[in-house]
Design a protein around this nucleic acid. Structure first.
Lengths: 211, 211
DNA sequence: TGAAACTGTTAAGTTTCCGTTAAGTTTAAG
DNA sequence: CTTAAACTTAACGGAAACTTAACAGTTTCA
């Protein structure tokens, strides 16, 4: 009853509904999912035990427990068994969806169409970069580079890594195209926007330390 | 009232209790925390607005909202504003602690392995070393040396051993390159960071004794 | 249609700075 | 006190990064 209505309510997602931990295990072997909704239901211990097994196997897919029990001990136990969240029956579908959004956001970390980190934000719609109040349009390649860097602040990408991500495959020929693009970006926003680590690569730093 | 009792209840953690978003911002600039408990309290919009600002600044510390309001819309809004969890007043301290455990656990699974020992941590992604609060970027060679030492705290490596690990094979020619690199590291973090054992080699000590 | 503006790349010249060497100074052990 | 090890500093060569210009291919628009 609840399974069917949920499947309908969550039609903006791809839902696979299985009725016991055995079927769940089988399905998880075949595909990977972004979220597990676990109804503790009636068979008292099996749900939590299954959750513990999951975690022990190293499967870290977020788990949202749905249950009718509301004693504090049960909730605490559920969370400590490896659940990520807890929802009490009866619940409103809107709240379930909100919690799903939270867990999904956590995984992909990008719900907003605008990519933002600190005082930098990229708008894919207009190919625009804002940084420290300044806003400029970027060419496609330059935008790609900035997107990679800002989506992974603090991570250093070598010239060849950036080439590979932008052009699909690593160009064997050595080229300084990336350097030139970075140069034009820096001319618009100031040299500090992209930090070079000599011999390693380029990064959009998480924290900026005094040079 | 609630702040004080919470501070007492959570005595197994290091708690910093501030009374408004202004103070919170100041504190977050100084130190980094594992979790933020946000009491939405009375001033209706300020709490959520502050949360949104936090996220826009790229501060991704988990946020657990505590509130008396229980309408579904409010909860949904809170979660969508960037909160990671939601707890309704009144609540049992045990449940709060369980949820804190969940969020803390979540934080640990980081994508990049950070090498840590004591108050020193190396981030390969940024080629950065943090030690006693200070954070600096290191050159490739210097980073290599620190990595060897911190991954094996207390082990003493001779100059030639370090050379061999860094350059692939032992350079027969005697060189003081390692010494110079260690010197630059010490200049940045203080001489104590690397301990020399005369005639044997260098180490990042497990325990530090007053000289 | 054709000139102007823009983009992506190559290429060459210039600058920066990392890693090393080398020489001088200080420290600690015997 | 003697001496080797460790520390410090300066200097240099060269690779890495930066800058600039030029060129071909596109797009824009009069």
């Amino acid at each position: 009853m609840i399974g069917q209505s949920l499947q309908k309510a969550l039609k903006s997602h791809v839902v696979n509904w299985v009725k016991d931990s055995f079927a769940a295990e089988h399905t998880l072997n075949l595909e990977t999912y972004d979220l597990i909704l676990l109804d503790l239901g009636l068979p008292k211990r099996s749900g939590l035990e299954y959750l513990v097994q999951l975690r022990e196997k190293g499967i870290m897919i977020p788990v949202l427990i749905i249950t009718a029990r509301d004693s504090i001990e049960d909730r605490v136990k559920g969370l400590d068994c490896g659940a990520d969240d807890y929802l009490l029956k009866p619940f409103a579908v809107e709240e379930l969806e909100a919690r799903i959004r939270v867990l999904a956001r956590r995984k992909q970390d990008r719900t907003h169409p605008i990519i933002t980190y600190g005082d930098a934000s990229l708008d894919p719609a207009t190919h625009t970069l804002s940084y420290q109040g300044r806003t400029e349009r970027l060419s496609v390649k330059a935008f790609n580079i900035m997107q990679i860097l800002i989506e992974n602040p603090g991570v250093i990408y070598s010239r060849s890594q950036l080439e590979e991500k932008i052009y699909g495959w690593s160009d064997e020929v050595e080229s300084n195209a990336v350097e030139v693009h970075i140069h034009t970006i820096r001319r618009k926003f100031g040299a500090e926007i992209i930090v070079n680590v000599r011999g390693v690569g380029y990064t959009f730093p998480k924290v900026r330390v005094n040079s």
